[in-house]
């Protein structure tokens, strides 16, 4: 944890906006640049920023390991679930046309959930890898 006051205050100020930007990139990806992958990385970057400034234990309190590990799998499951849901509603795997009464709305809904799945998995993996590296450092210090 850094004792630098400027860094701590600025970090606290910036992190909400970074998270907000991640949400913007996620949900505005249909209209502008961005999408699930970028949003997931940006959200993970916000937590990593927090971990660098306030220390890994503080970040682990905010985003515990079990949550991140389940996020890694959950995203793929959401993506695959959209596909299976399409099959259950009478389409082919990953057909979005059947997800709503109107085919265009079905497409929009399918793309939305698929992007959500991508964002969850990507941010989960990024955070987990960072935790792994940073956690090894701490384990070695404790020896």
């Amino acid at each position: 944890m850094t004792r630098d006051l400027v860094l701590r205050v600025l970090g606290k100020l910036l992190i909400p906006f970074v998270l907000l930007f991640a949400l913007y990139v996620q949900f505005h990806g249909d209209f502008g640049p961005g999408g699930g992958f970028q949003a997931g990385v940006i959200a993970a970057a916000a937590v990593i920023f927090y971990a660098i400034i306030f220390g890994l234990p503080a970040a682990r309190r905010f985003a515990p390991d079990w949550l991140i590990e389940s996020m890694v799998a959950l995203g793929v499951l959401v993506y695959g679930g959209v596909g299976v849901f399409g099959v259950l509603l009478g389409g082919n795997f990953l057909d979005y046309f059947v997800l709503a009464h109107n085919t265009v709305h079905g497409q929009e809904r399918g793309i939305f959930w698929v992007e959500v799945g991508v964002a969850i998995t990507v941010s989960g993996v990024m955070l987990k890898v960072f935790y792994m590296f940073a956690g090894r450092q701490r384990d070695r210090d404790e020896e």
Partner: peptide
Amino acid sequence: ETGVPNVVTSVLAS
């Protein structure tokens, strides 16, 4: 077909 103006997103996800 998809109602999504960003072609990158529609190609990627749909």
